[in-house]
Write a protein that binds this DNA or RNA. Structure first.
Lengths: 247, 247
DNA sequence: TTGCTCCTCACGTCACGTGAGGTGGC
DNA sequence: TTGCTCCTCACGTCACGTGAGGTGGC
């Protein structure tokens, strides 16, 4: 049997044969005068046995011991079955995430717990603004489980129809802040924003730690303009804070 | 943010960061005076988004287009979901095969259709002889579906209690054939074997083609001794064949 | 002379892990 | 001076696929 013949019979490529020789799962056969390899039926049988194990997903180097008469095949199969079960679980979990994201129409990098809240058409208008998405992602990543639940709760509150309109209006006004913002608008926006926050339940959000806060602040410093940062300052100072006009 | 800091925050290794720079999913940040990379919160956000997609199983080079504002994320997710479903099917099929092999106690290189027939304790005694296993494997591999069904049918006939005892006795006598075999034993064994074959239904086995027959013959030439090959000759010649003693 | 098969290197794949060897920072 | 972090190569992983370049066989 030539290389090509045995390969065709076993349904593998000639390169696969060579690889099996290299790693030692199949012995090098004798050569003919012209250097051609000459395989026997025994090689074919061995190749078929090797292939069957390889197709089960057994690593090549574990195959020779398994084919030996005293091979501890059971232990390997046990282990393999556990790994397969694990892999299937992981893949199934991925499909679940994908299904949730698609159902919500959310972008695929959305945390699945927030899909449906960050999705197109949910809170934030037809397309969420990039900084809102980023800040939410960042916050979500830093929170622990109860904190994430609180975040999801907050977002679903904002997504409610009556709150949604108000939120979108405030968001649009915030986005419009800039060098040309009329005097007084920052104060009014801060007051209106404060008013809306008062109508929301903010349970579970007192525990944002210092480093997380620093991250959020650093982000805001990078992406917001002077007026927008001024707005945050007013918001934090509270409705009783100083009222001097921006710029 | 230093390399180590951003890596720790995102739950990846520093090497992963470097790799992401190399393949371009994460831009190289600015350097400090000492050559250290200085990451920003924006890099962290991007890294978190990349990680989320990578964990879904999306290849790194497909990630940047997906994160772009106009990214055709849906098509990629569709494709990915199909691949995941396919993979899960394949893995599940493997587990099914493993379960069948284990239930039968068969060696892991057994064709699953024959598990339970080639298993320990089934036809062939506590441990099937290597050449019987090899010949069965070879034949099974060369047969088409109906042929395989016929083979399985034949093996289950042999595995029936009444036939099993007779089969094991004949098999043992065959294995014992050799230079020291007493005169007449080959003839008697061929006759007894022929008798047993007559009691079995051999439907579907007329269609063994020439090349398959050649393979089986070649195998037999390699592993059987003179007396055993003589036995096959007598068997094929039929009960009316010439009766000259071996050697 | 023309296809076909065979041969031997040897690089590429994918997402990093793992040293190797050397230099700032506290 | 001692750890710790950072840096840049560069090889290894797993099971082969895919040329590159050359030689027998009909």
């Amino acid at each position: 049997l030539n290389s090509g013949e045995i390969a065709r019979m076993a349904g593998v490529s000639v390169r696969t044969l060579r690889h099996y020789h290299q790693v030692g799962v199949l012995p090098e056969p004798a050569r003919r005068g012209n250097g051609y390899r000459e395989y026997t039926v025994r090689d074919l049988v061995l190749l078929l046995r090797v292939r069957r194990l390889a197709e089960l997903g057994i690593p090549l180097e574990e195959i020779p011991p398994m084919l030996a008469p005293d091979g501890a095949a059971d232990a390997v199969l046990d282990e393999l079955d556990r790994e397969l079960a694990e892999q299937i679980e992981r893949l199934t979990a991925r499909r679940t995430v994908i299904a949730r994201l698609r159902a919500a129409g959310a972008s695929p990098d959305t945390p699945p717990e927030l899909a449906g809240l960050l999705g197109a058409g949910a809170g934030g208008g037809p397309e969420m603004r990039a900084y809102d998405r980023d800040l939410t992602l960042l916050l979500h990543h830093r929170l622990d489980e109860p904190g994430r639940a609180a975040l999801a709760g907050l977002m679903s509150q904002v997504a409610e129809p009556d709150t949604l309109a108000a939120s979108e209006e405030l968001t649009a006004r915030f986005a419009a802040l800039g060098p040309d913002t009329p005097a007084g608008e920052i104060d009014r926006l801060a007051a209106d924003f404060h008013h809306m926050l008062g109508r929301l339940s903010l349970e579970g959000f007192s525990d944002i730690d210092g480093s997380t806060g620093a991250l959020l602040t650093a982000y805001q410093k990078m992406v917001f303009n002077d007026a927008q940062r001024e707005f945050f300052a007013r918001l934090i100072a509270g409705p009783e804070g100083p009222r001097e006009s921006h710029r």
